[in-house]
Lab assay of single mutants.
Amino acid sequence: HFTSQQLQELEATFQRNRYPDMSTREEIAVWTNLTEARVRVWFKNRRAKWR
């Protein structure tokens, strides 16, 4: 589960860029205190939901 702060950060990034690269995902991981893998999976799932 994600905190509302984490989701806000993830959503804001998603609005700007639906396909963040590795370095962007790592930055998000640092800001949100999540692993890069969790961030990558979140984006994958979010893109699926967005379609």
Rank of each mutant, 00 (worst) to 15 (best):
Gln6Ala: 06
Glu9Gln: 15
Gln8His: 11
Val41Glu: 14
Arg38Ala: 15
Tyr19Pro: 01
Lys49Trp: 09
Pro20Tyr: 03
Thr24Val: 08
Lys49Gln: 12
Arg16Gln: 11
Trp42Lys: 00
Glu36Gln: 05
Arg16Phe: 09
Leu10Ile: 02
Thr35Cys: 06
Arg51His: 10
Trp31Val: 15
Ala48Leu: 09
Arg25Cys: 04
Trp42Asp: 00
Leu10Ala: 02
Val30Tyr: 13
Asn45Val: 11
Arg16Lys: 13
His1Asp: 10
Arg16Val: 11
Glu27Val: 09
Gln15Pro: 04
Val41Ser: 12
His1Asn: 11
Trp31Asn: 15
Trp42Leu: 02
Asn45Pro: 00
Met22Pro: 06
Ser4Met: 12
Arg16Tyr: 09
His1Met: 10
Asn45Lys: 14
Trp42His: 00
Arg51Tyr: 12
Trp31His: 14
Pro20Ser: 02
Phe43His: 00
Gln15Arg: 10
Glu36Ala: 06
Val39Ile: 09
Asn45Ile: 14
Glu11Val: 04
Asp21His: 05
Thr24Ala: 12
Thr32Met: 13
Glu26Pro: 03
Arg38Tyr: 10
Arg47Asn: 06
Ile28Ser: 00
Pro20Leu: 02
Leu7Trp: 10
Arg51Phe: 13
Lys44Gly: 05
Arg40Val: 04
Glu27His: 10
Leu34Met: 09
Phe43Cys: 01
Thr13Arg: 15
Leu10Gln: 00
Tyr19Asn: 07
Thr3Ala: 04
Arg18Met: 14
Arg51Asp: 08
Val30Ser: 12
Leu10Gly: 00
Val39His: 00
Pro20Asn: 01
Thr32Ile: 13
Arg46Met: 06
Thr24His: 08
Ile28Met: 03
Arg47Asp: 01
Ser4Cys: 15
Lys44Arg: 11
Val30His: 11
Glu11Asn: 04
Asp21Pro: 06
Ala37Asp: 11
His1Arg: 12
Gln8Leu: 12
Asn33Lys: 10
Arg18Trp: 06
Trp42Ala: 00
Ala12Phe: 10
Val30Pro: 00
Trp42Gly: 00
Ala29Asp: 02
Asn17Val: 08
Gln8Asp: 10
Leu7Cys: 08
Trp31Met: 15
His1Pro: 13
Met22Cys: 09
Gln8Glu: 12
Phe14Asn: 04
Glu9Ser: 12
Asn17Met: 08
Gln8Ala: 13
Arg25Phe: 07
Val30Met: 13
Thr32Cys: 12
His1Glu: 12
His1Ser: 12
Glu27Leu: 15
Glu27Ser: 10
Leu7Ala: 06
Ala29Trp: 04
Lys49Met: 10
Ser4Phe: 13
Arg40Pro: 00
Phe2Ser: 03
Thr3Arg: 04
Trp50Cys: 09
Asp21Asn: 12
Arg25Ile: 14
Trp50Asn: 07
Lys44Ile: 15
Glu26Leu: 14
Arg25Trp: 04
Leu7Ile: 11
Arg16Pro: 02
Ala48Ser: 08
Ala29His: 01
Pro20Val: 02
Glu36Asn: 04
Val30Asn: 12
Arg47Val: 06
Glu9Lys: 15
Arg25Lys: 01
Arg51Cys: 11
Tyr19Phe: 11
Arg38Gln: 15
Thr35His: 04
Trp50Ile: 07
Leu7Arg: 07
Thr13Asn: 14
Thr13Cys: 15
Thr13Phe: 15
Thr13Tyr: 15
Gln8Cys: 14
Phe2Ala: 03
Gln15Ala: 11
Ala48Glu: 10
Gln5Arg: 12
Gln5Thr: 11
Arg38Val: 15
Asn17Leu: 07
Arg46Pro: 01
Ile28Ala: 01
Trp50Glu: 14
Pro20Lys: 04
Phe2Pro: 05
Pro20Cys: 05
Leu34Gln: 07
